[in-house]
């Protein structure tokens, strides 16, 4: 695996499966009375959030704390950033404070890439969502949830599973990361949206595209509903909320036409009544809450694999712990944690 996690496209199939398997290990600790691991003791993780996102920030924070890292939360609001400090100067400040890992959420597409490649900092960069570009840990936790619900087997990918992603693809970093990751894992992805909310050039993505939700529902193992901002209609992306909900929203009737085993996913926060009805959101087929819980396990796995470093990341003495990461950068040298533990 690379030193940073900027794009889901950077992950090989082996990388992705390794992260999912490691996350399964991490999830097992969540069921224990003491949830903390000593893995990242003495390491500093900075949550650098230029956009408000309490959900994502606390997920990364919980993950880092369960790995015993020191966590610094840096929110742009009310900080020097709101007084005009540049990303570069913020980065240099964090570097001076000795950040081993920087989790960055930024409104500009590419900001994490710049942070990782401009030589401003030495630590690992984890993209927690950049503009309308990518949100790779969201895609990983989605894949993790799908694998648990649709495959149920560690070490496996998502070969042949049919995943439908519905909504504002144009502005969605979740969709971009999911298309990359799910296709890497062997799933068949179909994007569904009104043509106005699909990017020019989408035909080159490794997926199918449809304007008709009803036509693909019966062939879907998972249907992922994306949040659609109501304000989009002001820019004429669709005429009204009601028309959007009628054509692209998921209600009980549509859900009933999905295969029995199929799940409904949502990255949150939900717009109930817009892309998803309350009945669907609260049904047992909807994994939204489960996705949040899985998010902590996935982010623990990512930080463990990226920041574990040359030192044994987890104590060997504790046989219940996953195997240590023996090399910082050599993905091949790292075996999936489950092999030693099962």
């Amino acid at each position: 695996m690379k030193r940073h996690l900027i794009s889901a496209a950077d992950l090989t199939r082996d990388d992705a499966v390794l992260i999912l398997d490691t996350a399964e290990e991490m999830a097992r600790f969540a069921d224990r009375p003491i949830k903390k691991l000593p893995t990242l003791r003495g390491r500093t993780v900075v949550n650098l959030f230029f956009e408000d996102s309490t959900r994502t920030r606390i997920s990364f924070e919980a993950a880092a704390k369960r790995l015993s890292a020191d966590v610094i939360n840096f929110s742009a609001k009310g900080s020097s950033v709101s007084k005009g400090e540049s990303l570069k100067d913020t980065a240099l400040t964090l570097e001076a404070m000795g950040a081993d890992g920087v989790v960055i959420r930024h409104g500009d597409s590419g900001a994490p890439h710049r942070l990782a490649t401009s030589g401003w900092i030495g630590g690992s960069v984890i993209n927690a969502g950049d503009g309308t570009h990518e949100h790779p840990t969201q895609a990983l936790l989605d894949a993790f949830t799908m694998r648990r619900r649709l495959v149920g087997e560690e070490g496996a990918a998502l070969d042949g599973r049919r995943i439908t992603i519905v909504g504002d693809i144009l502005h969605s970093r979740v969709a971009r990361s999911n298309v990359h990751l799910l296709s890497t894992l062997g799933a068949h992805v179909t994007l569904v949206a009104p043509p106005t909310l699909l990017p020019i050039g989408v035909e080159r993505w490794p997926c199918e595209v449809s304007y008709d939700l009803d036509a693909v529902l019966a062939k879907s193992d998972a249907v992922m509903m994306l949040r659609v901002q109501r304000e989009r209609m002001n820019a004429a992306f669709f005429p009204t909320e009601r028309e959007y909900a009628r054509r692209y929203g998921l209600d009980g009737e549509r859900m009933a036409r999905m295969p029995e085993h199929a799940i409904v996913m949502h990255p949150g926060p939900m717009n109930r009544g817009m892309e998803i009805t309350a009945a669907v959101a609260d049904s047992p087929r909807c994994t939204a809450v489960e996705q949040v819980a899985n998010g902590v396990s996935i982010r623990m796995a990512v930080m463990y694999l990226l920041l574990g470093g040359a030192e044994p990341a987890l104590s060997r003495e504790d046989s219940a712990h996953p195997s240590p990461a023996t090399t910082p950068d050599g993905g091949a040298a790292r075996r999936p944690a489950v092999e030693e533990n099962n």
Partner: peptide, 18 residues
């Protein structure tokens, strides 16, 4: 707009200049 609208802008998530 941030860059040419096309295949690359779609991937990079940058607003397109058609």
């Amino acid at each position: 707009a941030q860059m040419n609208e096309g295949i690359v802008s779609a991937e990079l998530g940058l607003a397109g200049w058609p």
